[in-house]
């Protein structure tokens, strides 16, 4: 199929970017979206132009690096997939596809479609961990009984790949879904209880410091999350936060 692409081009973090039109031809419907971008870039390199910079790594939906905002949706029109898993069969011959970087003050553009998501790393570092004794007498995690339901919910929360689609989709650029997934994966397990109070307070403080917006419960994040992280996690984080405020 033949497509018109409207892509955000921005030389570096400080440059003023703009949308630029490109044409690609003979795109196979079996290609992934990133392979289509590879075709475009080869074309650009061959004509001596600067290829479009975009993030990617695993190309199998687990690393969370690929981050395009395609036709008004993070990771494009398909449900429950990342951009690298998006197939070109979701588009039709002659389509115009608008491709933008994830937009948030806390995700500044580095170049073209590449954004800096280290704000997520800082949220994680501020409390998304547990402390364990590593001097040789570490307790076997399997020796701690955990209810099946809690284990399942913690696992679901832990499948968040930190892609940032929730922020990109949210009208408020809020990072509540990400942060709540990271809080929940520990809040549900006995190992997470020791640092529970500081964890949620520190992670929420860092989230606010990074300049993400306030949640207004529109639910756009849950719809667009490639891993189906549930809004229940946000409610859980709100509970954790309120109880932490009471406990000090």
């Amino acid at each position: 199929m033949n497509l018109t692409l409207k892509i955000w081009r921005q030389k570096d973090a400080n440059a003023k970017g703009k949308m630029v039109d490109y044409k690609v031809t003979d795109i196979s419907e079996h290609m992934s979206f990133l392979e289509m971008m590879d075709v475009l870039n080869e074309q650009l390199v061959n004509t001596g132009e600067e290829p479009v910079a975009f993030d990617h790594d695993c190309r199998e939906g687990i690393c969370g690096m690929c981050s395009m905002y395609i036709n008004g949706k993070p990771h494009g029109p398909d449900k429950g997939v990342t951009t690298c898993q998006l197939h070109m069969r979701m588009f039709k011959d002659g389509d115009t596809i608008v491709i933008e970087p994830f937009r948030a003050v806390a995700f500044p553009v580095i170049k073209d479609l590449v954004v800096d998501r280290s704000s997520f790393e800082r949220i994680q570092q501020s409390g998304g961990f547990i402390s364990v004794n590593t001097s040789g007498n570490t307790q076997d995690a399997n020796a701690i009984p955990i209810a099946k339901e809690a284990a399942d919910k913690a696992m679901d929360a832990a499948t968040c790949i930190g892609c940032g689609a929730c922020v990109a989709a949210c009208k408020n650029a809020s990072a509540m879904l990400f942060t709540s997934a990271k809080v929940s994966q520990y809040a549900l397990l006995p190992q997470g209880q020791v640092e529970a109070v500081e964890r949620v307070q520190n992670m929420v403080r860092q989230m606010d410091l990074e300049g993400f917006g306030n949640c207004t419960n529109t639910g756009a994040c849950e719809v667009e999350c490639p891993k189906g992280i549930s809004l229940e996690n946000i409610a859980r984080m709100n509970r954790e936060y309120l109880s932490a405020s009471v406990k000090g």
Binding site: G72, V105, K171, N172
Partner: peptide
């Protein structure tokens, strides 16, 4: 809240699909 939320986006999307994943009521409080 809404003022802070507007600021948090920064550069606006050229094509924003807000209506595809959230209700009008929730987006226009």
């Amino acid at each position: 809240l809404e003022l802070q939320n507007k600021k948090a986006r920064g550069v606006k999307y050229a094509k924003y699909g807000g209506s595809t994943n959230a209700s009008w009521a929730s987006r226009n409080m």
